[in-house]
Amino acid sequence: MPGRIGVSARTASVWRTATLTEIRRETPRVSTFRFAVPDWPGHVPGQHLVLRLVAEDGYAAQRHYSIASAPDDSGHVELTLDHVEDGEVSGWFHTVARPGDRIEVRGPLSGFFAWPGDRPALLVGAGSGVVPLMSMLRHHRARGLTVPLRLLVSVRRPGELIYAREFGAETTPVFTRSAPEGVAVGRMTAAHVAPIMAERPSGGWEAYVCGSNSFAEHASRLLVAAGQPVERIRIERFG
């Protein structure tokens, strides 16, 4: 299954300094971290980067994170991070980091989960799995693209819906534990997928699924059962 874009090997190998410029709270456990990376080579929505934190004794921790921001954000990238229990890296971001701090990043990486804005995009995410999909949605808006884009996003409760204020008619939230008045509570089902599949956009949907492994398994099965070709389902799992 081919990637959507080529990736420069040279781009992937260089460590660049990223300066934290802003921290925005998204939900009680999730914040967005904005970085200035003056020589950022640019990315395509859906790509990830690798970041590195280094302790005084030289100990380094590297993590892969999806990029949340759209490409047209000159010299800036945004990451949206969960505060993971006992997470040495996310813990630093959520309790120590402040504007002005400098870290190191490399990338962007992977052309597989990338969406250049060409094909109709069916995006399915859960929890912070919405992050790379948000980069696609923002790109779609920023460029005024007319190719169809739909987002299904699953969260436990309304207060955990990241980017809630930014969603429009293209997005259907699914609430698994509690929902706003008049909205059903329950897992994502075939009934959520069917109306989108029925749109049958020209050229067919390119599906992007991001979330935990159990969510990715569930969502990809729903898509396959609804007739989405397996070779047009791209999956990014946490881990």
Binding site: L53, V54, D57, A61, Q62, W92, R102
Partner: peptide, 22 residues
Amino acid sequence: MNITRGFTGRPRVDDPGLPPGQ
């Protein structure tokens, strides 16, 4: 590598079976 302000990381383990950065 540039030091990250305030980053200490998880407790160090002296595990010869663990490759660097893992």
